[in-house]
Design a protein around this nucleic acid. Sequence first.
DNA 1: ATTATATATCTAGATTTCTCGATATGTCAA
DNA 2: TTGACATATCGAGAAATCTAGATATATAAT
Lengths: 104, 104
Amino acid sequence: MKPINVFKALSNETRLNILEWLKEPEKHFPKQGAHLPKEVSYKGGVCVGDIQEKAKVSQSTVSSYLNLMQKAGLLESIRHGQWTYYRRNEEFIQQFAKYFKTEI
Amino acid sequence: MKPINVFKALSNETRLNILEWLKEPEKHFPKQGAHLPKEVSYKGGVCVGDIQEKAKVSQSTVSSYLNLMQKAGLLESIRHGQWTYYRRNEEFIQQFAKYFKTEI
DNA sequence: ATTATATATCTAGATTTCTCGATATGTCAA
DNA sequence: TTGACATATCGAGAAATCTAGATATATAAT
């Protein structure tokens, strides 16, 4: 775990928003693509296209943002057919919160 | 409180080190300048020159780093004569840790 | 007043990050 | 296999950050 990379990942308004949106996907991504039944989809995360639409940045930008956040540890992804679903890595995030409280 | 600015302040190895050193100033700045009696000095923080020496960056760099961290809320400073002493703003840092745990 | 010391501010080149459009890859449907 | 769609990767210009040296400002000592 490299704290610097986590802080860098969080040093951007759009990425910070994405992380917060993914706390409540049902709330922030109501018209989820019909690719999967809601339960499955939410459990597995939100697909790139839906995140892009809400974030209002280009497809390539959102893709690299998500990749960067995943490398930092904040997100994890699952591929389902042609879609990639991203969701929060809650375990890592809580672990990092603890690190912050005790080490920073 | 602007979280982005806090994350940006923490997105640098040197600044992160400084924040950690200031958790235990006696440990990391043993040969404190003789400007003030130890108790006073530690309570008030560590002077810029001592931090610079340990961080091994230029005087202007460390000065702007400290200023940036202060603006973000992480540090506070007190001037004593020709010296400026920087110390952690523990209240802010704890508050931010709580924000991280609940909002991020 | 002058000099010395500590810190802050200014300026600028090097590096990194941001962000896009273009293109490549992977998957599904016909 | 071909075409359509979702996502990933590439390449590049714009913007921000990094960091140093030079200079300015503030305080202290003589």
